[in-house]
């Protein structure tokens, strides 16, 4: 049983894709990130992806690196992330957590799974944990009924696609291009090919991320994927704003534009 499947089922019934919006926990502050995530929910983001800030985020481009640095410099702890997740889950929105592996390993894999489930989180997206190394997480996520989203890439072989989706629960994350997070001017040509390869091997919902930043791009991706994952473009709303109010206003506006996009899939 998947927790996050509810969001995908609902969107599918509406003939649209799920909008997943990412924000680092504790950016710009713990309270500021809760306010930002709530604003995203109010403006139509279906699932909030709370990223645990990490000192060495090798899958992230400059925007999320910068935001993570700000959060860490502000002293955010893993325990704060759990508090943020609980606060956002209370709004009724679903929360998925994106994390590099070392913070979880240091918290304790079983302990984190227990506390994440208690906070109302649905599961983890793990950019640097592949199923090959995930025995402890596979066990803990089973114990606490959490979802597991591993990533697949245009470079993944068919055998690895099959192996990876077998270990996923909830949805699988298709990285749209070879690269790191960050909005791009063009949507990826590789993504629809990767998604159709996934359709051959799984019925799991497919979320597509990397490089999506506008409503039009969200509509394009919604045309072939079940979920549209946006991070850097949303984070930039706060990074570029002169003050918090302006940042939240920009964040609401972009969230609404993206929500409109996933409701108008280009097929």
């Amino acid at each position: 049983m998947s927790r996050i499947g509810v969001s995908f089922d609902k969107a599918r019934a509406d003939g649209r894709a799920v909008l997943v919006g990412c924000m680092p926990a504790g950016f710009p502050t713990v309270e500021g990130s809760i306010a930002a995530m709530k604003a995203m929910v109010e403006a139509g983001v279906d699932v909030i992806e709370v990223e645990i800030p990490y000192s060495d985020p090798v899958m992230d481009g400059p925007v999320i690196q910068k935001a993570s640095d700000v959060a860490l410099a502000g002293g955010v702890r893993t325990a704060d992330t759990l508090r943020i997740i609980a606060a956002v889950a209370e709004t009724g929105a679903q929360v998925v957590t994106m994390t590099y592996w070392n913070p979880i390993e240091q918290y304790g894999v079983d302990a984190f799974a227990r506390d994440l489930a208690a906070a109302g989180g649905t599961g983890l997206i793990t950019p640097d944990l592949i199923p090959d190394e995930a025995d402890e997480w596979l066990a803990a996520s089973d114990t606490y009924g959490l979802d597991r989203t591993f990533l697949v890439s245009p470079s993944s072989t068919d055998a690895r696609l099959r192996m990876t989706v077998e270990h996923c629960r909830g949805f699988v994350y298709a990285t749209a291009l070879m690269g790191v997070t960050g909005a791009r001017a063009q949507t990826s040509q590789a993504a629809p090919i990767l998604v159709s390869r996934l359709r051959e091997v799984t019925d799991l919902p497919v979320g597509v991320g990397l490089g999506v930043g506008t409503g039009a791009q969200a509509g394009t991706v919604a045309g072939y994927a079940d979920g549209v994952i946006v991070g850097s473009a949303l984070v930039r709303c706060l990074l570029d704003a002169p003050d918090q109010a302006a940042g939240l206003a920009a964040l609401r506006a972009l969230s609404a534009e993206l929500a409109e996009g996933v409701r108008n899939p280009v097929r």
């Binding site: 592949i130 890439s153 470079s155 993944s156």
Partner: peptide, 20 residues
Amino acid sequence: AAGHFGRFGGRFVPEALVAA
């Protein structure tokens, strides 16, 4: 075969790098 020296080593990388 997966590069583990006892409990150490292995591959903690984005899937995008596995093929390489």
